[in-house]
Amino acid sequence: MAAKIRIVMKSFMSQANKVEGVIPYAQKVGLPESRSLYTVLRSPHIDKKSREQFSMHVKKQFLVQKAETHELQKKLFWLKRLRLLGAQYELQISFKTRLDKKLLQAALSSGC
């Protein structure tokens, strides 16, 4: 497994049941839910005590999928195509390549 795709999914509705269809065979970790609470006045003029409260609940899920370096392009394509509406994906892609030895030697020799 030369490459790894880490995904952080954020959405207002729970997407735990739909992940299997989009990203099969992935390790899953549920992240804690984050809330933003807002309290606003109902009236534009007086009546300060009359207030209304709102909250935004963001549900997160962390997924790890392993792949080969040559598969990354395809996996990215399918992730982009089959993604769930209403969910934000943040992908962190890690992979490895090799530095060209000749160019490195040239750089080393030119420095001298």
Binding site: Y89, F95, K96, R98, L99
Partner: peptide
């Protein structure tokens, strides 16, 4: 076994891609 084939130093890359909801 994870290292790619060939000679030379190994470069480890990381990049981020964000798909917005809808």
């Amino acid at each position: 076994l994870d290292d790619p084939p060939g000679e030379g130093p190994v470069l480890r890359w990381e990049s981020r891609i964000v798909f917005a909801p809808g």
